[in-house]
Design a protein around this nucleic acid. Structure first.
Length: 436
DNA sequence: TCTGGGGTCCTAGGACCC
DNA sequence: TCTGGGGTCCTAGGACCC
């Protein structure tokens, strides 16, 4: 008698692979002199430190600390700061993902520096799960120069936690599989880890949990799900199941379409004129529409918002937003820009010093199932679709803003600051690194 | 110049209408 | 004229994550 292969569902086994200090590590690959130099990479507009080298973390610098608040510390400890270079990071990210696909075809690219993999079908290829993790680490290091840590567990939440342990405790040597631990070992590690380290438990929920006497991950894992449900809802109940090894979150191999798309930026300086606000809103709308078309969706509602500098209470504050429902859902940059500028016209007031502007696309649906209006002109539709297709193709081939709407303008006095960006080493012929 | 990110989802509550 | 429920739309803001 044969046994039907696959009849028994395999126990779930997930891995989370995460690049250490991703942006900082990308910069160091191309500038080895930055190894061991305390280094931060700043967010858009050179605002906050969004990536910190281990030396900087050791100084107690928290995620998203404003750079200007770090100036003294930077002088004191020789911290260097680079503007972010998303073109470089995006390209390096793709390289890591393509390596990981060789390890398991079941992969969810969770963020620019993190991927979940389902590994239960491929684990038999290795003597031990840790050997698989080690193989991932060394191949990524060798092929891209980037250091990663690997966490494994019976659910995505456990894999994420294991990754945290692998990063934080040298004893794991960069690879931690919670499934491979004995029960006392598991209890030990979960008991010395604060509940705030759990995926989905942020600062506020941490505080509320602690007030209930739930301090550690082990405490949370041992809490009655009924209690968690009444106090925090189904999401926390699910997190607790995941911590107990019951996998509730599937791998999202196909990225689900966004229900809301935001494009916004702070300005490099205060903006007062309506014309400049219009240019920035048009620019943001173009970017939002590119994202919308990339997921083959249409939007039936847009919002436009502008705001003054909330950190300057001495200046008059104004932060209006306006929603506009469209007669018909669409993905045409020109149509949506037109609507956004109309909206801006309604909320704009002269006399304020604006610091940020943005657009939101919502009421999003699949383009294929688009509701048709009674009086639609199909020929016009095709014309619009063709135009957008050509625009996207040209901008992909020849670089952003090769072709754009006139509303975006050509002055960029309001553009964000980016004072210390490294070259586009891997994506631009003129900026390839030199090896002497 | 005088510094403070960006994105997604979700919900409370006000305004308005039936 | 007064009262109330319930729905929708919109705005504001919380929470989380990287």
């Amino acid at each position: 008698m044969g046994v039907a292969i696959g009849a028994v569902p395999r126990a779930a086994h997930f891995a989370l692979v995460d690049v250490n200090n991703f942006y900082v590590s990308c910069e160091r690959v191309f500038q080895p002199r930055l190894e061991r130099v305390p280094l931060v990479v700043l967010s858009n507009n050179d605002g906050c430190a969004v990536a910190r080298s281990s030396e900087v973390k050791a100084l107690g610098v928290k995620m998203a600390t404003p750079w200007f608040l770090l100036k003294d510390l930077a002088v004191q400890h020789g911290i260097q700061a680079l503007s972010s270079n998303y073109t470089l990071y995006g390209d390096m990210s793709e390289r890591v993902v393509s390596i990981l696909r060789d390890f398991s075809p079941d992969i969810e690219v969770y963020s620019i520096d993190e991927s979940f993999l389902r590994i239960d079908a491929v684990l038999h290829l290795y003597p031990h799960s840790l050997a698989m993790g080690e193989a991932m680490r060394s191949r990524i290091r060798q092929w891209t120069g980037l250091p990663v840590c690997v966490g494994m567990g019976a659910s995505k939440t456990l894999a994420k936690l294991a990754n945290h342990l692998a990063k934080k405790h040298a004893v794991f040597n960069g690879v931690c599989d919670l499934n491979a631990l004995t029960d006392p070992e598991l209890e030990h590690w979960l008991s010395i880890t604060e509940v705030g380290e759990v995926w989905g438990v942020g600062r506020q929920i941490s505080l509320r949990l602690q007030a209930m006497g739930i301090q550690t991950v082990w405490d949370l894992r041992s809490t009655s799900q009924k209690i968690l449900r009444t106090h925090f809802g189904v999401v926390m109940e699910r997190t607790c199941s995941e911590l107990n090894g019951i996998s509730c979150l599937e791998l999202e191999e196909v990225v689900p379409a966004k229900q809301q798309i935001i494009a916004s930026r702070s300005f490099g300086r205060a903006v007062t004129s309506r014309e400049e606000l219009e240019e920035s809103v048009a620019t943001h709308m173009a970017r939002a529409c590119e994202k919308l078309r990339a997921q083959s969706s249409v939007a039936a509602m847009i919002q436009v918002f502008v705001r003054t500098n909330r950190f300057k209470p001495s200046e008059p504050q104004y932060s209006p937003s306006i929603a506009i429902r469209l007669a018909e859902a669409c993905d045409d940059t020109l149509v949506l820009t037109d609507a956004a500028l109309t909206g801006l016209g309604r909320i704009f007031k002269a006399g304020y010093r604006y610091k940020k502007a943005g657009v939101v696309l919502s009421s999003i649906s699949e383009k294929a199932q688009q509701q048709r209006g009674l009086f639609d002109d199909r020929a016009l539709d095709h014309k619009s679709a063709d135009l957008m297709k050509v625009m996207d193709a040209l901008n992909t081939r020849f670089g952003k803003k090769t072709v754009h709407s006139a509303a975006m303008g050509n002055t960029t006095g309001w553009a964000m600051r980016s004072e210390n960006r490294s070259p586009h080493y891997t994506t631009c012929w003129d900026e390839l690194p030199f090896v002497r």
